[in-house]
């Protein structure tokens, strides 16, 4: 995997998740950060920090990105969401336009 094809997502508690750019761009917010014109730090360094998203939630979101890509390519299986994470995940998803 080439470095330029990946992006590093950093949670509020400092965990780093390296994911495919294609997967990360499932999020409209991340897509905008990485593609908007100008030299935004996110675009230059290929990393985005989320000071309000914990590692537990960010991990789940990364799983969702890949689930979404699989789903779009025709693989129909349910995306599991733990009840205790629901509200926090919903807020993060809302922020990420996912």
């Amino acid at each position: 995997m080439k470095k330029e094809d990946t992006v590093k997502l950093i949670s509020s508690d400092g965990f780093e998740f390296v994911v495919d750019k294609e997967a990360a761009m499932v999020s409209q917010t991340i897509r905008n950060m990485l593609t908007s014109p100008g030299s935004f730090a996110e675009r230059e360094h290929g990393q985005v920090t989320f000071p309000e998203i914990s590692s537990t939630i960010l991990e789940k979101i990364c799983q969702y990105f890949y689930w979404h890509l699989e789903f779009a390519s025709g693989k129909d299986r349910e995306f599991p969401i733990e009840p205790e994470l629901t509200l926090e995940l919903m807020m993060a998803a809302n922020y990420l336009h996912t």
């Binding site: 969702y64 789903f71 779009a72 129909d76 995306f79 969401i81 009840p83 919903m90 998803a93 996912t98």
Partner: peptide, 21 residues
């Protein structure tokens, strides 16, 4: 099969929250 617009994570979470209200 679900439609593409039904796979938005916010919607999945809302559904889950309703199931576990």
């Amino acid at each position: 099969m679900k439609r593409k617009d039904q796979t938005c994570l916010v919607d999945l979470c809302v559904e889950k929250a309703i199931d576990n209200v």
